[in-house]
Design a protein around this nucleic acid. Structure first.
Lengths: 110, 110
DNA sequence: ACATATACCATATGACACACAGTATGTCAA
DNA sequence: TTGACATACTGTGTGTCATATGGTATATGT
């Protein structure tokens, strides 16, 4: 694992939570999320996403229901009100971080 | 530890590396960095920053030198060329993430 | 039949933010 | 002159999470 890969991994923490909370305003299942994000140029490992979905559900930020009527059983996740609150907080943090980076970039002018 | 605090912690991963790499275009020592960032409204725990500085130095992204001439011995860190490369990569990732969030926000209109 | 796609899960590993605890010197005011 | 507070750094946890590895099981096209 080189430094940049590792750095990207670290940068993805938190970010991915925000992405999922934004995306799941419409109910979707895990495998679908992976492919939708892939289309947007964002590769997310299944083994990263599935645990994340479960963690967010445990926290009450997502709700889930199994749909067995379709060809393959699918677990649909959707954001809850609590999840929207969390999303708001994450967005605030993200905006604040953006401002910090902008300020520093101007000072460094790199 | 509530969810938002924890989320902020996760959001800080990677972000803080980028901040340090931007800031250390000018040589600074740890305690000074903490206070400079504090002034900018960014509270960074000493116990987070010091290990981070050491890790970045191990990676070759920072160089350090002790200055014993001042009242208190201070360890000055400065970004290296390798660190600038890493910084460039982190900035790219950050910009890409920003675009993703923007796109998703528009779709969700939240 | 068999490969490939779909769809999910369990366990282990390693990195890192932060907590907790400590060492040691400098400064300033009562 | 003492003792509180600031300065400046270090060491050793702990917990969370991204990712690696390695599954299970069904569907679908050839």
């Amino acid at each position: 694992m080189n430094e940049v890969d590792n750095a990207e991994k670290e940068m993805n923490r938190g970010f991915l939570q925000l992405v999922v909370l934004l995306l799941l305003e419409k109910a979707m299942y895990g495998y679908m999320i992976v492919r939708v994000l892939e289309e947007q140029g964002l590769t997310v490992d299944e083994n990263t996403l599935y645990p994340l979905l479960r963690r967010l559900e445990e926290k009450g930020a997502l709700s889930s229901r199994w749909d067995a009527t379709e060809a393959k059983a699918r677990k649909y996740y959707e954001v809850t009100d609590q999840g929207r609150v969390l999303r708001g907080s994450l967005l605030e943090i993200w905006v604040k971080q953006g401002k910090t980076i902008q300020t520093l970039r101007q000072e460094v002018r790199s």
